[in-house]
Amino acid sequence: MPMATLYSTIHYWLVDHPTISQYEWKPNHTVGASKVFVTLTVSTYLSITLSLLHFPVLPTLSPALLRLITASHNFMLCFLSFLMAIGCTLSALHQSPPHNLSWPICFPLHHTPPRGPTFFWAHVFYFSKILEFIDTLLILLSGSRSRRLSFLHVYHHAVVVVMCYLWLSTSQSLFPVALVTNASVHVLMYGYYLLCAVGIRPSWKRLVTDCQIIQFVFSFLISGLMLYLHFSGSGCEGIRGWCFNAVFNASLLLLFLDFHLKNYAKKKKLSQS
């Protein structure tokens, strides 16, 4: 298939398809577009997780069945993350006004309703974070919850859903960049977990954590550009949502740095002693 035809086909299914190109976020109408939905989703996740931690009533699965479920889950999220990264990239380029490459970084204030293909992929990303709740269930089913189910894991999975809701409800500037970088890192992360699930233990586990930390550092650097555009121009849409996002990312960066120190720096020190 010629490259031009391949690109046109990909662009149609990821950008131009009517379901995607005509997407619109309508508060209290679109699925998931309400504060009640977000509140119930996060509170249910936390309640079930804490209940299962204190009252482990889940059935015991055979190792082979658990590996199959885990591999399928990781493959699905790895592939979905890849689609989101490509789809949002193409959509943001398509939706950006001519000669305005800063559009994904700074949506024009009062002129960026949450509709179009870029926001469609934000909605897919939003629901993918709910799908990632299965990560927690798989940890609990593995019977190693005391070793792997950390505060960082539960905190991240719960609050990221709120962040994605704010992306859409506030038409938050900069989310296309955040979505593409996060989805790209998740391709690497879920690819690693997929290989582990099928019995292959890659040597680049640390790279996953390093990329996650780099992602947060990059988000602060690109946020500086967004703030410059906001204060030097007519303003960027969704600043209140960005403020929540910035605080959340700062907390995650601190937690990931602490995780990195405990899991890699101390191990390196022990190996050298």
Rank of each mutant, 00 (worst) to 15 (best):
S184N: 01
H186N: 04
H99T: 07
L40M: 11
M189L: 15
L257T: 07
L141T: 00
H99I: 03
W204G: 02
E24S: 15
S51L: 08
M3L: 13
L50Y: 10
T209V: 08
M84V: 10
L131Y: 04
K262I: 06
L109Q: 15
H157R: 08
S144M: 04
L195Y: 01
T19S: 11
Q172M: 15
F107N: 03
G199A: 03
V187C: 09
T209H: 09
H29L: 10
T41R: 10
L270W: 01
Y126I: 00
L80T: 12
C243I: 13
I130F: 04
G233Y: 07
V208F: 03
R240N: 14
C78M: 15
T209Q: 05
Q22S: 13
I20K: 01
I214D: 01
N249K: 08
H153A: 07
A178I: 13
L225A: 14
P114A: 09
L137Y: 08
F244K: 04
H99Y: 13
Q212S: 03
I69N: 01
L40I: 14
L179P: 00
E24W: 02
Q22V: 00
H29G: 06
G238Q: 03
G238E: 01
A33G: 10
I213K: 07
P98D: 12
L68K: 12
S8W: 11
T30G: 15
P2L: 11
L141E: 01
L40C: 11
H156A: 14
V198D: 00
D16H: 10
F119K: 10
L90W: 02
S169K: 11
F259D: 02
G116Q: 04
S21V: 14
R145H: 09
S43L: 15
Y155A: 11
Q95C: 03
F220C: 00
P176R: 06
N182L: 11
H111A: 15
A4K: 12
L174C: 14
R147M: 05
T5H: 11
H123E: 12
D210V: 15
G238L: 01
W204L: 09
F120G: 08
S144E: 07
S223H: 10
I86P: 03
A85H: 04
N28G: 08
Y193E: 02
A197K: 05
L66Y: 05
T70C: 01
V198Q: 02
F175K: 08
F37S: 02
S91Y: 04
H186V: 07
V42L: 05
V15W: 07
N249G: 11
R206D: 04
P202S: 07
D258V: 08
I69L: 15
S43I: 15
Y193V: 03
C236P: 06
R240S: 13
R148T: 12
L6F: 11
M76H: 08
R240F: 14
E237G: 10
L138A: 00
V36L: 14
E132C: 08
I139T: 00
G87F: 02
T181W: 05
Y228I: 03
L257V: 15
P97D: 01
V31E: 08
L68A: 10
R145V: 04
T112I: 06
R206F: 03
L227Q: 07
I200R: 04
L80R: 06
H29V: 14
Y155W: 09
L194I: 13
Q22E: 08
F119N: 14
N263P: 00
Q212M: 07
K262W: 06
F220D: 00
R201C: 10
P108I: 05
